[in-house]
Design a protein around this nucleic acid. Structure first.
Lengths: 95, 95
DNA sequence: ATAAACAAGTTTATAATATAAACCAAATTA
DNA sequence: TAATTTGGTTTATATTATAAACTTGTTTAT
C-alpha cells in the first residue's frame, strides 16, 4: 500500500539540495545556501550525510583564494531521488 | 524557489494516515494500523498530533463492547494536504 | 602594518521528532 | 477464574534537525 520513504531524502533541506543538484549538475555551498535559505551549519551537516550515503560527490577546491565546496549528484543519488518520488506517489495518488 | 513543507504532514506515518483518511472518509485504528503497518503506540501518538492540529477528527465509540476510535479528515486537513502536495512539487519538478 | 570585519565552512550543543517498549482496562476464551 | 486477546495510551529512548559557537583564512579600513 504505502511504500517506505528513504529517510535520507525525506528531509526538507536534503531534498532541496538533491533537487537543486539534479537541475544544476554542480553547485557550491553559498549558492545552495542562497537557494535553500539554509544556515551554513545545517547545510554542512546535511551535505555530509548525503555525501556519506554516496548520493552526492563533494569536491574541495578554491575560488581564487577562498575555499569552495563543490557538490554534484551521483548516479546513486539520482536513482534514490527517482525511487523516492515514486514511493511518494503511493501517498499522494488519492484522486 | 522551495516552498516550506508543513512539518505535520512531512512525516511518513502521518502522511499515510491523512492519505488513507482522504480516500476512506472514516477509518478506525485497527484498519489504519493494518494499512500502514504502524505499531499501536506510534499510531496513537500521531493521531493525537493530527487531531490537535485540527487536521482530523477523532470520535471515540464502541464496536459492540469493544472501544473503537474513528478518525476522519477535516476540511482543514484536506486543505493542508493539498498545500503540502503543492509545496512538494517545487522539490520534484526537476524535469 | 595591524585590527576589525567578512567569508566559507565545521563542530557541538540543544530542541524537536519518531518510535517502540511497557503499560492499562475491558472483553473473550480456555 | 485464570490466561489471553483486543484496543488503545503513556513514557522512555533513540534519532534527527537545527542553530549557535567556533575555526581558518581573507579582505578592508585605519
Amino acid at each position: 500500500m504505502f511504500k517506505p520513504l528513504d529517510p535520507l531524502l525525506h528531509s526538507e533541506l536534503r531534498l532541496a539540495v538533491v533537487s537543486l543538484l539534479i537541475s544544476s549538475d554542480s553547485a557550491d555551498c553559498p549558492y545552495i545556501k542562497e537557494q535553500t535559505g539554509a544556515t551554513a551549519g545545517n547545510l554542512s551537516v546535511q551535505i555530509d550525510k548525503l555525501s556519506a550515503a554516496g548520493y552526492i560527490e563533494v569536491e574541495k577546491t578554491f575560488k581564487g583564494k577562498k575555499p569552495c565546496t563543490l557538490c554534484r549528484i551521483t548516479p546513486l543519488g539520482l536513482k534514490a531521488f527517482e525511487e523516492y518520488v515514486e514511493a511518494l506517489r503511493s501517498y499522494l495518488n488519492v484522486t
